[in-house]
């Protein structure tokens, strides 16, 4: 990537955004009819699809049953054509397993599992196109899918990345910026209470810059929350209108 500036002199990034601008977020709930809840989200060029099945009886592995809460089961998978270079294994490699585990931990903390003892909630996320911020798109799509399925949560979970390149923090890193080797921080948080559910950082970042980047990521999550919230309200009022009209 030599010769390609991440931030130009006027302060514009490669895709024309400013350093604290999010990519365009488009979302749709209720994409599939057979799943209990489903959602599709596009963050710039990253496309993610999430489906939720449950709560239902624990199927495989009787050992997983918890007597006082529901078991959350997640699977993360990337389509083979999602990345620039064809990916031969959609799921099962270490990175996917790690992502699945993080998703599970994130949603276990947020879904009110005490309401569904001895049952299982499945969350499956599929990345159709990967252009940076994969984990964030997954979390946002899964939040919408869980809302679509009607499973109660303590709050939305919104995720956003923030990076630090050339002495300035950047919001919502795309793939090109990721592969330039700069450090970036992925934050998943509950926007109203500002509590962080998951925090992950790659590459080297000086401790003094940590606060700035964390602040920017927090702001980004709140912006994502605003978009998702508006979308959910529109969707619900639409469905309500359809139901009462007929």
């Amino acid at each position: 990537m030599a010769g390609l500036e991440i931030i130009s002199d006027q302060g514009y990034r490669i895709d024309g955004r400013r350093s604290s601008e999010l990519r365009k977020v488009c979302a749709r709930m209720g994409v599939f009819t057979q799943a209990d809840g489903s959602a599709y989200i596009e963050q710039g060029n990253t496309k993610a699809l999430a489906t939720v099945y449950g709560p239902h009886e624990v199927r495989k592995g009787r050992g997983k049953i918890q007597h006082d809460r529901a078991v959350v089961n997640c699977q993360f998978s990337m389509a083979t054509f999602s990345t620039g270079e064809r990916k031969s294994r959609p799921k099962g490699d270490r990175r996917s397993q790690e992502m699945s585990m993080h998703l599970r931990q994130t949603f276990e903390a947020v879904i009110v599992t005490e309401l569904f003892p001895r049952s299982q909630i499945d969350i499956y996320v599929q990345i159709l196109q990967a252009d940076g911020g994969n984990y964030c798109a997954c979390v946002n799509a899964a939040t919408l899918a869980v809302i679509d399925a009607g499973i109660p949560m303590k709050d939305y979970v919104c995720a956003c990345t923030a990076g630090f390149i050339q002495d300035s923090p950047l919001l919502d890193i795309s793939y090109v910026e990721e592969s330039a080797g700069a450090p970036f921080l992925t934050v998943a948080m509950m926007p109203k209470s500002e509590q962080i559910v998951l925090l992950e950082m790659n590459s080297r970042l000086h401790a003094d810059n940590m606060e700035k980047v964390l602040d920017l990521a927090t702001q980004g999550c709140k912006d994502v929350f605003a978009v998702l919230d508006r979308h959910v309200r529109d969707h619900v009022s639409e469905s309500h209108a359809l139901m009462t009209a007929s």
Binding site: M101, H102, Q105, T106, L185, I196, L198, L199, E200, M201, N202, S203, R204, L205, H206, A207, M210
Partner: peptide
Amino acid sequence: EICTLMMS
């Protein structure tokens, strides 16, 4: 310099 951060 923070090289990695993981909270889960």
